[in-house]
Simulated assay, not measured.
Amino acid sequence: MPKQAAHNNTSSLMIVTGEASGDLHGAHVVREIKKIFPTIECYGIGGTQMQQVGVDIHTNVSELSVVGLAEVLKHYPRLRKILNKTKYSLKQKKPDLLILIDSPDFNLPLAKTAKQCGIKVLYYISPQIWAWRKNRIKLIQKYVDMMAVVFPFEEKFYLDANVPVEYVGHPLTKEAKATVEKNRLINSNELDPNKKLIGLFPGSRLSEIENNYPVLLDSAKTLLKQREDVQFITPVASTLSNDLIQKYISEAGIEVNTTSNNIYNVINACDAIAAASGTVTLQITLMQVPMLIIYKISPITYQIFKRIVKFSYAGIANVIAGKEISREFIQADATAKNVSTELNKLLSDERYIAEMINNMQKIKNELGNKDGSANTARLAADLINT
């Protein structure tokens, strides 16, 4: 364990994330950092998870939760105002360390400001620059002191670019476990224990809900016409309101249970899941629950992405595996017919299910059991102490 800094009483760090999953990862890192620096001052951009471990939240993560070019342009004035406010805070407070979590379009400009102010920068969870916009590596080379990456192949990518890097392990490998039994969640949510439970996971950003949830709800309605032994549940991310989700459910005219319960408890209770592409698909993979992936974005954003993104899959587990272990339905393929047909297969084709679960286990084995949060906290302490 790194030694405690002599200036511990005045140590401070700013931590910034742009989405719900980063709020969770950031909270775990801060918890580990406080084991090393019990009185460190932590502040920045995050959500309820980071707030619960003592981070002073200046801006809620929900303010940044947009995805896609068209969506970003729509909200650009507000995002720019938040960025400028955060830069000003960096310059005024001059923390000992800036920890950035993913969200590169917001965070790389912050890294530049930090470097200009002599503030050290630790980047946790790399942008997917190995897949698209690889020129961002130049910004990382100039402005980031240490990359803490969560996939084994990312370490070599940065080493080849002469960027200080450590593969710390993926934080989800330690987090991915249910805390209550399946039957308990079924009963507490007044679900029918004799019916199959289908998870409808639409994402954590408003734009993801707008683009993906109607498809998931239509798919559920289509599946109900084929079989009556199914019921549905949607976890509500901390960046969203339950009222918003209920509005979509009401408009669809279908019964869907909603919950803010621990995401792993919800995953564990499901027999199959239809999920929007994102961190949650890796969480589902690690819990080894049969899954399909959908993703829809604005047409203009999709056309641009098709020209510049250099990987074959949307789901991170499929990217790691180098093959489609869970079916993906992207853009025009994300239809109620396609999704309901695949859900039916995930409930009834035992050989298909077994093969998918076996491939998920291989992904879990490949990611190993490193403690990503504790290792990242150690890197943070090293940067603060030097």
Rank of each mutant, 00 (worst) to 15 (best):
K156Y: 09
K156G: 13
F157P: 08
F157T: 09
Y158M: 13
Y158H: 06
L159G: 07
L159S: 12
L159E: 14
D160K: 09
D160G: 05
D160F: 03
A161P: 11
A161S: 14
V163F: 05
V163N: 01
V163E: 00
V163M: 04
P164N: 09
P164I: 07
P164H: 07
P164V: 04
P164E: 07
P164R: 04
V165T: 06
V165D: 01
E166N: 15
E166Q: 15
Y167D: 01
Y167A: 01
Y167K: 03
V168A: 02
V168R: 00
G169Q: 00
G169Y: 00
G169T: 05
H170A: 05
H170P: 06
H170D: 11
H170E: 09
P171K: 02
P171V: 00
P171I: 02
L172M: 10
L172W: 00
L172C: 06
L172R: 01
T173W: 02
T173F: 02
T173I: 12
K174Y: 06
K174F: 05
E175G: 03
E175V: 04
A176K: 02
A176S: 14
A176I: 11
A176Y: 04
A176G: 10
K177W: 10
K177T: 12
K177P: 09
K177H: 15
K177I: 14
V180E: 08
E181F: 08
E181T: 12
E181C: 11
E181M: 09
K182T: 01
N183V: 10
N183W: 03
N183H: 12
R184M: 15
R184D: 14
R184Q: 15
R184V: 14
R184L: 15
R184C: 13
L185T: 00
I186R: 03
I186M: 13
I186E: 05
N187F: 06
N187G: 03
N189Q: 10
N189Y: 07
N189W: 05
E190Q: 07
E190A: 07
E190L: 07
E190W: 01
E190C: 05
E190I: 05
E190T: 10
L191W: 08
L191Q: 11
D192L: 07
D192S: 12
P193F: 00
P193N: 05
P193W: 00
P193G: 02
N194Y: 06
N194W: 04
N194F: 07
K195I: 03
K195D: 06
K195M: 05
K196H: 14
K196T: 10
K196Y: 06
L197I: 10
L197R: 04
L197K: 04
